[in-house]
Simulated assay, not measured.
Amino acid sequence: MTRLLLPLEHDPHTAEQHGEDALLHALKRLPRRVQQVLLLNRLDQLGFAEIATRLDLPLVSIERHMNQALQTTRQPGDALAASAGHWYVRLQSPQVTASERIDFRRWLDAKPEHLHAFHDTELRWRSLLAPARQLGHDGWYRQGRAALSLGGCSIAIGLGLAALAALGLLA
């Protein structure tokens, strides 16, 4: 009788690749606008204000999109990681106030778990770089606002034409 034995050692590169694949899959499930904001920030290193100007969006939308992208990296139901993620994104905003920075410092100093969660958030943020490169490899995210909405417009036009044809108005 032959037995197949699995190696006891495991390749850390394989585990790392699996993690990156899972992150890439999670990023692909995000709305296209969220992907675009993330890629402009991570790959082109644009700040929130620059992204807001480029996409003609309010800064609060940029923050919301960045937070949504960062939250894809945390475990569901981890409230502490969610709070750390909110702080991480908020502190990058040009609209953050001195009062908010003081509140963050108080939150960070309140419990050792907060510091640990914030540190984990920074590591998760860094872990997004490789999947972001894969997601934006062809530069699609550099297109303007109109380029992203063309897909929706063409669907709407197609449905409109189909409705007109069904009604017999397009003969």
Rank of each mutant, 00 (worst) to 15 (best):
A22H: 12
A22T: 14
L23V: 14
L23A: 09
L24Q: 00
H25D: 11
A26K: 13
A26D: 07
A26P: 00
A26S: 10
R29E: 15
R29M: 04
L30C: 07
L30Y: 13
R33Q: 14
R33I: 11
R33W: 13
Q35M: 14
L40W: 09
L40E: 04
L40M: 08
N41Q: 13
R42V: 15
R42W: 08
D44F: 10
Q45C: 12
Q45Y: 12
L46R: 09
L46P: 11
G47C: 02
G47Q: 09
F48M: 09
F48V: 06
F48A: 06
A49Q: 08
E50G: 02
E50K: 10
E50D: 07
I51R: 03
A52V: 05
R54L: 05
L55W: 05
D56G: 01
L57Y: 07
P58Y: 03
P58G: 04
L59I: 04
I62A: 01
I62E: 00
E63R: 05
E63Q: 12
R64N: 02
H65A: 01
N67I: 07
N67T: 11
Q68A: 14
Q68F: 03
Q68H: 08
A69M: 01
A69K: 02
Q71T: 12
T72Q: 14
T72M: 15
T73P: 10
T73H: 14
R74M: 13
R74V: 15
R74S: 15
Q75C: 12
Q75Y: 11
P76E: 14
G77W: 14
D78L: 10
A79H: 02
A81L: 08
A81S: 03
A82R: 08
A82F: 04
S83Q: 05
G85C: 12
H86Y: 09
W87N: 01
W87D: 05
W87K: 05
W87I: 08
Y88I: 12
Y88C: 13
V89E: 13
R90T: 14
S93A: 08
S93V: 15
P94G: 14
P94A: 14
Q95T: 13
V96C: 09
S99D: 06
S99A: 05
S99I: 08
S99W: 02
E100S: 03
E100H: 11
E100L: 00
I102D: 04
I102A: 06
D103Q: 11
R105A: 01
R105H: 08
R106T: 09
R106P: 01
R106H: 15
W107Y: 08
W107I: 04
L108R: 09
D109C: 02
D109R: 00
K111I: 02
K111V: 01
P112R: 04
P112M: 06
E113T: 07
E113C: 00
E113I: 00
H114R: 01
H114A: 13
H114N: 07
L115W: 02
H116C: 06
A117N: 03
H119G: 10
